[in-house]
Amino acid sequence: MTVLGAALRPLFQVAPKDLPAAALDAGAASERLSKVVYTVTECCQATLLTRREATLVQKLDAYPEELRGFAYEGAGVGLAALDHLLPWQRRTRRFVDGAASPYVFAVYLGAGMGLARLRRDPETFRRRLGDEVFNWVVLDGYGFHEGFFAHRRHVQERATPRHLSGYALTPFDHGLGRAVWFATGADVKRVAATIEAFPEARRGDLWAGVGLACGYTGGVDEPTVAALRARADAYRGRLAEGVVVAARARRQVGNTAEHNEIACQVICGVDSREAADIAAAALADLPTDEVEPAYEIWRRRIRRQFA
C-alpha cells in the first residue's frame, strides 16, 4: 500500500492557490475553515502511506477530539482512492464496518472527495458500499469537492456533473452548500447571495448543506449564526435539517462542540442532545425497498420537525 500511496500522494496535496480567494481572507472564520481543510489533507496523505489499519486509527485518534471527525474524513479520501485502483480490497467498507463505524458519515464524505479528486464517477463506488441508508453521503462529499476546488464551474456557473442524474443531484447539492460555506469564508451575505443565484429548485438542498457546515465545522459566533438563520428565510427548515444532521454526527462519537450547541439552539430552538435525538428517531423503521432512497426519507423526517 505504501508504494501505491506514495504514487497517489501528489494528487492530494492542497496549496493556497487551489482554494477560493474568499476562503483565505483574514479572520477567525477563514482561519478555522483553512485548518479543517488542511487536517483533512494531512490525514488523507497519512492514510495513503500507512499500511496497517490499526496504525492508521492510532494516528487519527491522536488528533484533538474536536478535529477528529475531519481526521477520519481525510482517511476516507485516501481509502476511496486506494479502493478505486484496487477495488477488490474494499478498504473503505471494511473500515466503516469496523474501527470507523462511529465515523461513517465523515468517512463517506471523504470518500466522495477522493473520487472527485480522481475524476471518477462516484455512483459505482457508492453502490459497492452495501450501506442502504448512508451510502448517498458519498455524493455529498463529491459535491463539496467540486464546489470548493472547481468553484467557478459548479458554484459561479452553477453547472452539474453530466454523469449524475436523479436523486444523486440532491446530496451533490448538499455538498455544494457546504462548499459555499467554506468558499465564502462563512460570510452570511455572500452565502445568501450565492445561493439566491441558483435556480429555486436547488436552493433548499444548498441551505441544508450550509446548515451541516455551520453546525459541524462552525467558524462563526452566535450573532453570525442568528444572522444566517434570518437570511435563510423560507429555507430555515432546510438549514435546521443540516444542523440536526451535524448534531447527530458529533453526538454519535461523543464529540460535542460549542459551535454546534450554538447552531442547534439558535437555528433549531433545541439543544444539541435534543437535535441528535431527533435525527436518531428519524432513522427508525426506514423502508429500504428502493422505491425512494431511505436517506431522503430520513432527511425529510428531520426537516418536517422544523417546517
Rank of each mutant, 00 (worst) to 15 (best):
T256L: 12
R300I: 06
R202F: 02
R190M: 14
G74N: 05
P171Y: 01
W88Q: 15
A6V: 10
A249C: 10
A234Y: 06
L24K: 15
R9A: 15
V191Q: 12
I297L: 12
E290G: 04
Q58N: 13
L49H: 02
D18V: 05
T41I: 05
A159V: 06
E292W: 04
D18Q: 02
E258L: 14
G98L: 04
G204L: 09
P64Q: 00
A294Q: 11
F134Q: 09
V138L: 04
G175P: 14
E146T: 12
A201W: 11
A284P: 02
A213K: 15
L4D: 05
V245F: 03
R153Y: 00
H163A: 06
A275C: 09
D121M: 10
T47M: 03
A150C: 08
L85E: 08
A168H: 10
L109W: 02
A279S: 14
Y63T: 12
E123Q: 08
A183Q: 09
D25G: 08
P293R: 13
W88M: 13
R273C: 03
P223I: 14
G218R: 01
L286V: 13
A263R: 03
H163Y: 09
R153K: 13
T47D: 04
G74M: 07
A249Q: 01
A111M: 06
G177C: 10
A280M: 09
T184G: 07
F105Y: 14
A208V: 07
V191Y: 02
A80R: 10
A186K: 13
H151K: 06
V266I: 05
E31R: 14
V40L: 09
A99M: 14
A111T: 14
G74A: 06
L139P: 00
H145M: 10
G269N: 09
K59N: 02
T55Q: 12
A23C: 13
L11S: 08
V57H: 10
A249K: 02
E290R: 15
A193T: 13
A183Y: 01
D25L: 12
G27A: 08
V77N: 02
D277S: 08
F134R: 08
Q305S: 12
V245I: 15
V133W: 03
P87R: 05
R128Y: 00
G166E: 06
D233L: 11
C43W: 03
P199S: 08
N135I: 01
T55E: 14
R250S: 02
Q58I: 00
T224W: 00
V270Y: 02
A62N: 11
R273M: 05
P10F: 00
L283E: 15
L19D: 05
A26T: 15
N255Q: 15
W207R: 04
G74L: 09
R127P: 04
G218L: 10
G166R: 03
Q45H: 12
T170P: 05
L115V: 11
K189P: 04
T124I: 09
F182K: 07
A197I: 04
V104N: 08
I302R: 13
G114K: 04
A46V: 15
I267K: 01
V244W: 00
E53P: 01
D97R: 15
Q265Y: 00
A284V: 15
L239D: 00
E274P: 02
F12D: 03
A232W: 10
W298Y: 07
R238A: 10
G254P: 07
